[in-house]
Amino acid sequence: MVARKVFARPVSLKDVATHFCPGCQHGVVHRLVAETLDHFNAAGRTIGVASVGCSVFLYDYFDINVVEAPHGRAPAVATGVKRVHKNSLVFTYQGDGDLAAIGTSEIIHAANRGEGLTVIFVNNTTYGMTGGQMAPTTLPGQRTTTSSAGRNTASDGHPIRMAELLATLDGTAYSARVAVDSPGHVLEAGKAIRRAFGYQVEGRGFAFVEVLTTCPTNWGMDPVAANRRIAAEVIPFFPLGTFVDRSGDER
């Protein structure tokens, strides 16, 4: 019987095992970004900006040129890159501590300048690499190693909804929040990431995709239970959707 391969790892992704923990959805987001680079046949003219955290090893997994940025500074580094290579596809890949805490200044101003960048923001509600401390996106009541009684919004403040926040800026052409907790959501996430890169190809301005993911290890849950928490607890606080889309056409 003749068969055709209908699903395989994208070629922009190196054929190596990742260092991510079992069930960590960085791997899914990596694959979706790589599928997009394959779609635009753009790996050769793509420059990735790696951030600090579990996502730093971008260069080990993507077959593209990469520059490493200091913690939170990826949008500034990417700005320098993009201003030199205007026709390249430049993206940052940042976690929630990196983007929504130490790097809030850089992300807000890169968006506000309308830099022609694509930003992939991986929100797993915790600091993964450092061992599960409270993040700017940690949910109210969520226990972490620095909020052992649960996040107390009276003293710890409230989780930041970055996709909504950035959507208020005139320089942001596209801002969406997606999840990868179900096959349907993975498909939607892939479309959003493709759109965010497409806007850069078309020179429309700053494009931002927040992806809700799990951190089974630091959540203290098995991967399937952690994945179910996304729908049960995370999405109700961080609603999925497109918060701004200055595409100029309705697709």
Partner: peptide, 26 residues
């Protein structure tokens, strides 16, 4: 060329880092 009045000194030096990584004098 490109001139950016950045949001901070921190952003400025990291823009230099990015441009320099691409081989430009920055």
């Amino acid at each position: 060329g490109e001139f950016i009045q950045a949001e901070s000194e921190i952003a400025s030096i990291n823009m230099v880092l990015g441009a320099s990584a691409c081989g430009a004098r920055a």
